[in-house]
Design a protein around this nucleic acid. Structure first.
Lengths: 339, 339
DNA sequence: TCCAGAATCCAAAACGTTTCGGAACCACTT
DNA sequence: AAGTGGTTCCGAAACGTTTTGGATTCTGGA
């Protein structure tokens, strides 16, 4: 493996000059620079990033800490879209992306900051961890620049990108109300997710604004899982058959709710309107196609990477980005046929 | 950031001893080892991998070179499943995963080996690149250990993992033949994919074994794209209305074919049987649900990582792994109603 | 008492790069 | 002739680790 020393030897200059030539400094004669470049091409040189990182004390690497990258969660291509967005940005920058996984036994052995410090990543993007994850605390305490996805924590080293979940939820519920629904339930995620909190808030606000009562027993947690949501919906719809619409905090849970409706021989949308959240790929492919609140997940990934690199390069304080949402009306919502 | 030197200073021993203590060498007194461990915990020490990699000349990092990680290809969660598999393995090993993207302008600037050499990855997994990709040549020529997914190249540094595509294709076509179909077309991918070559081979073999003629004009290329396949199928079905079944080399293309059938008002499966390949997530969710050849994509990712790490650790020569396939009969194939 | 061998420790070199602080040289100006 | 300023180069230190090849001390047996 050719090093800078080899090139120095061959061209007859010092390693300093080779380094400075290759890095475009002005204090090297154009002729020698050309010679050095030529020789380093001939010798197939490429710099050793480890040596460089060691002395420069930065690695041009950003870490991605996810939790949704396991076999079972392949249905939920949220993570894939985030990744695609991040990848799109980093591919055009000179940063590399290393994947940290929180799904493993490593999580228990190594702390978040250890992970980051060992690999000497310059910054981190975090997606899909729960608010009760011990990693989260460490993030805020450590001084590694960090962009969170859908977790509203802001300090001088950590920023976040999210969508307006309150507004999104209101859009969804208002759509149902506009269709004449008055008995609307909510399938929420779990209490350890900020999005759940916000979507619940939007749900309630929309009801209040429409002068509809809030039935707390109509608000259940489906853990963001298709199966759990199916079970919970089964209970809910059996105990409260007068419910005419369900707002779900994720599309995956909406699918579960639809399965439950099917088991109870309730027609969607005529017997029950269902609206999801996320607009995952499956939403437009299931039958009937799922009405949902769409968020540009790819854009979130891209934006997260962009923001992180920006704070890394410019030393700017990370800030907060909120993206909009869009109601996608498909076939699982219809006018309320009961009173 | 605490270093080994700091610990040496505090504990009153040399850096050598600290290093050897932390790395579990036997020539350090158990008492001093405990002291060193205690102090390094107190000082929140974590080793600098760059320094370590520099001197050890290996990085405990494997690279993943993919091409399917762009916005448009989010439907195809093949890549996600591969990634999940790899991630599952690396998470339990002490290797990290860094993502190389081939979708960018970087591709033109930097060669494959430059990418690998710069980052000093110990090995690489490659997925989703075409056989005419210039990177592929470099892979074989470079001496970096490498595992290819679905690309049959084998040398003393490169191995591959794949499924039995000939057999899988035969299974698919035999299924159609068993349903009474005699006029079977094929929607293939493109000539720069080994899987296309093999699936075509299996297609032909099955026809020959059943004494059915091969119509070359019934074999078209859909570029592994839903849209292209739709267009090609439109032409094919218009020009040759006697075709009763189509074997598609990917599920995504099968979806395109189904759209074409819909546009031509051909009922699936009664007017046309369609069978796909891959068993992507969507296959079981579309209506009618897609009959397909299932391959365990997750397992391929896991196997690739396992094999790579194995050759890295044991110095073993990489070899060839072939996984099985499975026919999943769903609703897009039915008995031939014409003669 | 002396010696062999085990146990425990350490100094220094090495990995490949960047960068600080100057050195050497040349061409001008005064 | 002396000083000034610009251009082009370089030696050496530094980054944080591992490893080589001993050095030192201790233990037990002859």
């Amino acid at each position: 493996m050719t090093t800078i020393k080899d090139i120095a030897r061959v061209t007859g200059v010092s390693v300093t000059t080779v380094s400075r030539a290759l890095n475009g400094y002005s204090d090297v004669n154009e002729k020698t620079r050309q010679k050095i470049i030529r020789v380093s091409k001939e010798m197939n040189y490429s710099p050793n990033t480890h040596a460089r990182s060691l002395v420069m004390n930065k690695s041009k690497t950003i870490g991605l800490l996810v939790s949704g990258l396991v076999k079972s969660s392949v249905k939920d291509n949220f993570t894939l879209q985030i990744l695609a967005g991040i990848n799109q940005f980093t591919a055009d920058s000179d940063y590399d992306l290393v994947l940290f996984s929180t799904t493993s036994t490593k999580q228990r052995e190594k702390t978040y900051s250890q992970l980051c410090k060992e690999r000497r990543v310059d910054g981190v993007i975090i997606q899909g961890i729960r608010t009760d994850d011990p990693y989260l605390l460490e993030v805020v305490e450590s001084n590694i620049p960090c962009v969170l996805i859908d977790i509203p924590i802001n300090s001088n080293t950590v920023g976040y990108i999210t969508t307006d979940n309150v507004e999104g939820a209101k859009k969804a519920v208002n759509h149902l109300i506009g269709l004449g629904h008055k008995k609307i339930a909510m399938m929420n995620g779990h209490e350890f997710a900020f999005v759940s909190k916000n979507r619940l808030e939007g749900f309630k606000e929309a009801l209040v604004e429409a002068d509809l009562p809030i039935h707390n027993e109509w608000i259940v947690n489906g853990e963001f899982s298709e199966e759990a949501a199916e079970e919970k919906a089964l209970e809910l719809l059996t105990e409260h058959p007068d419910i005419t619409a369900i707002f779900c905090a994720s599309d995956l849970m909406a699918l579960g709710v639809m399965k439950a409706a099917k088991r109870l021989a309730i027609d969607v949308p005529n017997g029950l309107s269902v609206i999801g959240y996320d607009d995952i790929l499956l939403a437009s492919y299931v039958t009937p196609a799922l009405t949902t609140i769409s968020q540009n997940i790819y854009e979130m990934g891209y934006g997260a990477a962009k923001q992180l690199v920006h704070t890394l390069e410019e030393g700017a304080e990370p800030n907060v980005i909120t993206l909009g949402t869009e109601l996608k009306v498909r076939d699982t919502t219809g006018p309320c046929l009961r009173r």
